[in-house]
Design a protein around this nucleic acid. Structure first.
Lengths: 179, 179
DNA sequence: AATGAAACGTTAAGATC
DNA sequence: GATCTTAACGTTTCATT
């Protein structure tokens, strides 16, 4: 799939392999725009222009370029979980089985697919070290956590065991990356 | 500070103590609005109205209500770290000192303040369990990670030791909470 | 190639029913 | 909650450097 894309694109002038785009060069103005939009995704182009020292149409063109390059992936509304009744956050380290009963489906693929279907899992990363995966899970309370662990996570054939840490306090939590 | 707010608000009809607002009741339409805005923070009120089966002005009023209740905390642009050259994500478990040389400043307060000033730390939570804090850190590469650990984190007087896991692959990462 | 200024179409916001 | 009106905003065009 990737190799065919590579072949196809070597035959042309420009080349864009998914996930391997060249790192877009960002000047000082681009960075100011990104910082502002990461703080307020609905800031007007006039306000952006004033901050960047450009006209709004010039800013608009830069924003479009950043969007098309994937530097700006999306615009979203942020909802604090505790405001919608999700008062308990857990980080769960998960270790997978080495193999499952069905040799055709390995634990990793099974787990990857399952994680996508579990709405309480908002973050999942494969990690170096002893435990295979780290999950961030949002639940209403301890009872819902117990149900997620007992009925969902540990019941899954790909999962060997897990270790949980609960969030006592959130000191910092930003979607803004430093640019 | 909180007690004076409590006194002031007990004298009135309605009462809003910071961080202790009653969980706003959300009906099916509110949830649809929240789901849509968490997917696309710039969706028009006409489009929202069509999805929710309401007029755009009715949707606008609901959104304002959700904003004022803090259910919608903010609107932001999302920038994938790898698109701005931050190719390495680390989860760092940090254990704090029991006390510092200066008995007036405890490690916890020192660490809290320091974390806010470190731009590469995008997430920091106090956890149950052995290790006191979990950080998510975005850096360019292993060299920058080494510098952060050696020159910043472990140099800080509040920090006793830490354990790092690096992200191999990100299976799921959403800012949208399940509503 | 990137910018700035102005014109145009769309959207948000407020008043009224 | 819906309709209508006005002001603000986003978007395109074109001249300019």
């Amino acid at each position: 799939m990737h190799s065919s894309a590579l072949v196809a694109c070597l035959a042309q002038e420009t080349c864009t392999i998914p996930g391997m785009e060249a790192a877009l060069e960002l000047d000082a103005i681009d960075r100011r725009i990104l910082r502002a939009l990461q703080q307020d995704g609905r800031v007007t182009y006039d306000a952006l222009a004033a901050e960047a020292g450009l006209s709004s149409s010039a800013v608009l063109r830069r924003v479009r370029r950043l969007e098309e390059a994937g530097v700006i992936a999306s615009y979203v509304a942020l909802v604090p979980p505790e405001r919608v009744g999700l008062g308990l956050t857990a980080y769960i380290n998960v270790r997978l089985e080495k193999q499952t009963d069905n040799p055709l489906r390995n634990p990793r693929d099974l787990f990857r697919a399952a994680v996508q279907t579990w709405p309480e899992v908002v973050e999942c990363a494969a990690l170096t070290g002893e435990m295979d995966y780290l999950l961030r899970v949002l639940v209403q309370d301890m009872q819902h956590y117990a149900r997620f662990i007992g009925d969902t996570l540990l019941m899954h054939p790909s999962v060997q065991d897990c270790k949980t840490s609960f969030v006592l306090e959130r000191l910092k939590n930003t979607t803004a990356v430093p640019v």
